[in-house]
Amino acid sequence: MPRVALFATCLVDAVSPETGVASVRLLEAAGCEVEFPAAQTCCGQPAVNSGEPEAATRLARHFVEVFEPFDAIVAPSGSCAAMVHHWYTRLLDGGWRQRAQAVADKTFELSQYLVDELGRPDLGASLGGTTVTVHDACHGLRNLGLKSSARTLLETAGAEIIEMVEPEMCCGFGGTFAVKYEEISAHLADDKLDHGAQTGARYLTSGDGACLMHLEGRRRRTGTGPECVHFAELLAGGLP
């Protein structure tokens, strides 16, 4: 039985614990033994993206120390997993870089782990009659190459996927960009929600909670667009 360490991410831990619960249920449905290393905090991405690499490096070292004992590390966020893959080896050097590379090699985004690593697209979830459109969150798409795995999970569960125009276009979240340039950020959210609405799908889903919090917050303000939900929560909702 694969032993998996869940990296819940600070956002899920603090604001959307349901995504974490859903992730655990999916991993267990796939036959994994899930552990939650209690010493975990944040991957450090807010710091590196704000131009503070020293602060990010401090949290990168902490992450490596916490997670290196495990066989696999799974996060319900393409962006946080991409931080480990893309930035840790660039921030750290010497022996730390080697340790970071070893940790990155066994760090996965949730759908990537279930479909590409375990080969378990069928989790026994049933989403027959549910229509979904998928937003390809940027860092998972471009840094980890995620494109099909979340779609495979949803389709295997019986959901109907209706693709939107430009699913790979950024939703406008962008971390601190969302509050520094809120006009552009909201404009891009509206484009994404309009594209989602055009599909007629019931849900707009993605593998990154931060994008979804931004999109759902905008949807609640404007009233336009499908309900924005993490794919893990959709799938877990379909588990027996």
Binding site: G20, F36, E182, G217, R218, R220
Partner: peptide, 21 residues
């Protein structure tokens, strides 16, 4: 405000994920 000028915000109230775990 910088967030809520254009979007609603989710204010959590229940336990954190680690508390639920």
């Amino acid at each position: 405000r910088a967030w809520t000028d254009t979007r609603d915000v989710l204010v959590p109230s229940g336990p954190t994920f680690r508390e639920r775990w």
